[in-house]
Design a binder for these strands. Sequence first.
DNA 1: CTTCAACTACTAAGATTCTCATAGTTTTAA
DNA 2: TTAAAACTATGAGAATCTTAGTAGTTGAAG
Lengths: 225, 225
Amino acid sequence: MRILVVEDEPKTLHAIQQGLEENLYEVDIAYDGLIARQLAMRNNYSLIITDIIMPGLNGFVLSRELRQSGIQTPILMLTALGETEDKVNGFDSGADQYLVKPFQFVELLARVRSLTKRGSSTLMTHQTLKFEGLEMNLDTKVVTRDEQVIELTAREFTLLEYMMRNQGRVLSKVQLAENVWDIGFDTGTNFVEVYINYLRKKIDKNFDTKLIHTVFGMGYVLKKE
Amino acid sequence: MRILVVEDEPKTLHAIQQGLEENLYEVDIAYDGLIARQLAMRNNYSLIITDIIMPGLNGFVLSRELRQSGIQTPILMLTALGETEDKVNGFDSGADQYLVKPFQFVELLARVRSLTKRGSSTLMTHQTLKFEGLEMNLDTKVVTRDEQVIELTAREFTLLEYMMRNQGRVLSKVQLAENVWDIGFDTGTNFVEVYINYLRKKIDKNFDTKLIHTVFGMGYVLKKE
DNA sequence: CTTCAACTACTAAGATTCTCATAGTTTTAA
DNA sequence: TTAAAACTATGAGAATCTTAGTAGTTGAAG
């Protein structure tokens, strides 16, 4: 099982290489996109792991060119948080999966395993949560409402994700504190309210139908009207 | 098994009450220190859980007065992060344990169980890490070097704790990132270095012997000289 | 001994998270 | 119906966390 890793940051590159080798994969490395392309065209890799921002040839272009050359090798693209615009573009380039940095190595391994399994390689597993025009891509961390990209911070994302997974259910503040903040219970401050407020500004403010509703004395719900 | 809970914040109070009752404890409550004192003197509680900042009579005074009246009931004191000075005082007041807010309810339960066990009630289980005049109290989160109190942020505390637990061992940046930040590996930024720098300013700067050492190309160690 | 590359220290700025105080809203009860 | 109590919204600010850039250090190679 041979994997090509493309990454210009030497330490990251070697960390990935070492980790993969410890897990008994054969690893080739490339510091830039041009060399990566040559290698990928010549060899028969089971998987290509590539960064987006690189000298020579960026991950998107690399990905696209390989696909155009008829190379079907699964591609796992590494992206940094905050490169949101880029991410959206990325999906057209033929990458099979995304992984947002920073990540746990086990997470990378899991993706590698799933992508190198025969048959599942063409499965584009973009796990998303959807609700009334609101869409969360859990792989790329991109959130949109009616195609419009919404920038969320990490905490806001986690909060919205929890509400999406429990859409229609009234969630108490204690429940939210426990599941989003990992905080036992009421600290005396109103941080949940504050964050609900943040979310509303980003998700509901510029739209006619509001999705986040207050249930007085009970908590909050994500629902249509 | 009867417990007295003293807390002026109604929601927190009721959360604790409810949680304890669900776990089959009998619970009395008090909104302020004066009432708490009366109750505590009259009844024979297995445990008193009290906040520090309260109207009427604060947790320290309450604790001290009860002890002076010969009441030996174990006391679990709830404190908010950042009340460091107070915490140090607290130990003289006769409280048996501290719990820093915010906390998980299971943690509270664990303390309650341990304090209500006969025999262990007088056990002051102040778990501390020590190394060359440096002392970390894991219950109160108070850090001192040569008796001098050092204020650390949550992240700094976690980092120092990890280094204390691995004193003498060289810890790579990847290792620190994994264990302190829960980040898989190198993100390309130098946050570990920055935090080592923060720690050094607080822990080593004003002292002759330095405890944090750099091992070039390897990482950092906590050791004497 | 010098030079270079790799690594680390330090500073500063920016983003995020959380707290606090105040204003507004809803419910309850007189 | 009105007042009080309980609950929620919101703005502002402080603390913390993170990134980025530059300066400084170390070790290795010539």
